[in-house]
Design a binder for these strands. Structure first.
Length: 423
RNA sequence: GGAGAGGUGGCAGAGCGGUCGAAUGCGGCGGUCUCGAAAACCGUUGUCCUACGUAAGAGGGACCGGGGGUUCGAAUCCCCCCCUCUCCGCCA
């Protein structure tokens, strides 16, 4: 949620910035400003009446104490009238606030100055590419075929037991998954992130705080009996660890990481992009989260992308860093970098990480504040990144490392897997 | 799931219908003392909203887990929900 103060002070700037995200904020902003004014005046009136009301009730108290019951009763009649007025004003105020909030919540985060306009992934900017793309023989297989050949992933059993998009990993495939998770967690803790194991279900407040609600409601699995949402990413529980917290400026930066299963309904997805491991309803991911001082957040974003790049180098995968254009960025983000690995048999780049700075957008929603050096209350900045999402890493590893001798395991993983190839 | 107890300011903990934003202790901040520090003493100390003020701040309003109700008046009484603790049941 964009802090109201910014909208008040520079509405036209906000409109102009949001246009970079292809978001026409014009009417929303002006409606908000109008409601803001209405809210203020209503509240002013309501406060005045409340003050009167308070005074009167106190008078009644002292009259009763003084034994002047008659006078007190007269006052009671007066009070009844004011009370009714206060109640009406309060109701109007609540309604105005509700409307205003509804509009505020619909505004996406303001993109950073260095985000370029654009409407689709085609407009994203490739920051750099690294690693060499392997030349596979013509008989090379895509990972879904390799999965069958080596008996390490079963989509078939997954569909029987649960449904499409819920694969089973098996044997060395399962071990490889576990190895990747441990490797990513170890690297994250080495980099100073504190490891958490979060709940996989969260309540409504948490889902709202990080921006999943209200707009992405349909993308999450929901447990109506208890009003819980299955997390689409560990970002949700991790960031919410600090919901409603008031920190000291010396507490920053705060670095958290977690492995979790992630659940996404992926409503509306179809076609060849969803084949094999490319898009799943349940997948594993290690997430890194940082809370930072506003002045450091963009530098921290770079630091986090370096961490991701480091992981990909260690896995010996060809990858590229992509800066997202306005139109491809998420609702909550101010600046996002994606990392894509090249999956050699599919001959395409697969997104394996997304690292974003949410500036004060989430902090505002979740009331994550701190006192700065001057004792002023301010909103913190929140950031997160996948480090990394497993399925597409798995896909690229299998495809790129295939040979007649089997699947080769990168050096960095061998201490975890205990084997150097899948024969 | 059943029975009981409880949720108060950064923390601990009083208040149980009026003048209570809330005693007291601890902590924090400022000061006195000191070469300096500790101790002691004195002062101060929350959040949010706000058509006054350039600002510091002043004035007003709201907030005692969340929501509703009773009452002229609620932290205090009643109802619903959430959470914590104890006991019982069930269970990885």
């Amino acid at each position: 949620m964009i802090p109201l103060q910014i909208i008040r002070e520079q509405p036209d700037w906000v409109i102009q910035r949001l246009a970079v995200k292809n978001f026409d904020a014009n009417s929303l902003i002006y409606q908000i400003l109008e409601l803001d004014w209405k809210r203020k005046s209503t509240q002013f009136e309501s406060d005045e009446r409340s003050a009167e009301y308070r005074k009167l009730t106190q008078e009644i108290g002292s009259l009763i104490k003084a034994g002047q019951a008659g006078k007190a009763n007269d006052r009671k009649n007066e009070v009844a009238k004011i009370k009714e007025e206060v109640r009406n004003l309060q109701e109007r105020l609540d309604e105005i606030s509700r409307q205003m909030n509804e509009l505020l919540v619909r505004l996406p985060n303001i993109p950073d100055e260095r985000v370029s306009p654009g409407i689709s992934p085609a407009d994203n900017e490739i920051v750099y590419s690294e690693g060499s793309i392997p030349q596979l023989p013509p008989e090379a297989l895509c990972h879904w075929d390799l999965a069958v050949k080596y008996q390490i992933i079963s989509f078939e059993i997954g569909s029987k037991v649960t449904g499409a998009g819920f694969p089973f990993y098996k044997d060395k495939g399962a071990k490889l998954q576990r190895s990747l998770i441990s490797f990513f967690l170890d690297e994250a803790t080495k980099a100073g992130y504190t490891e958490y194991e979060p709940p996989l279900l969260v309540n409504e407040d948490s889902a709202f705080a990080t921006g999943q609600l209200p707009d992405k409601e349909g993308q999450m699995y929901f447990v109506p009996q208890d009003n819980f949402y299955l997390i689409p990413t560990a970002e949700v529980p991790l960031t919410n660890v600090y919901r409603n917290e008031f920190l000291k400026h010396t507490d920053f930066p705060i670095k958290l990481c977690a492995y979790s299963a992630c659940f996404r309904r992926e409503a509306g997805s179809y076609g060849k992009d969803v084949r094999g491991l490319n898009r799943l309803h349940q997948f594993d991911k290690v997430e890194i989260v940082q809370l930072s001082l506003p002045e450091n957040s963009f530098q921290i974003l770079e630091e986090m992308t370096e961490h991701v790049a480091h992981l990909l180098r260690k896995l010996e995968l060809p990858f590229r860093k992509v800066k997202l254009c306005g139109g491809d960025m998420s609702f909550t983000s101010a600046l996002t970098y994606d990392f894509e690995v090249f999956s050699a048999a599919q001959q395409k780049w697969l997104e394996v990480s997304s690292v974003s700075n949410f500036t004060e957008f989430q902090a505002n929603r979740m009331k994550l504040r701190f006192k700065d050096k001057n004792g002023k209350t301010r909103l913190a900045h929140t950031l997160n990144g996948s480090a990394l999402a497993l399925p597409r890493i798995m896909a690229a590893l299998l495809e790129n490392n295939q040979s007649s001798q089997g699947i080769h395991i990168p050096e960095a993983l061998i201490p975890y897997t205990g084997f150097d190839s899948i024969p």
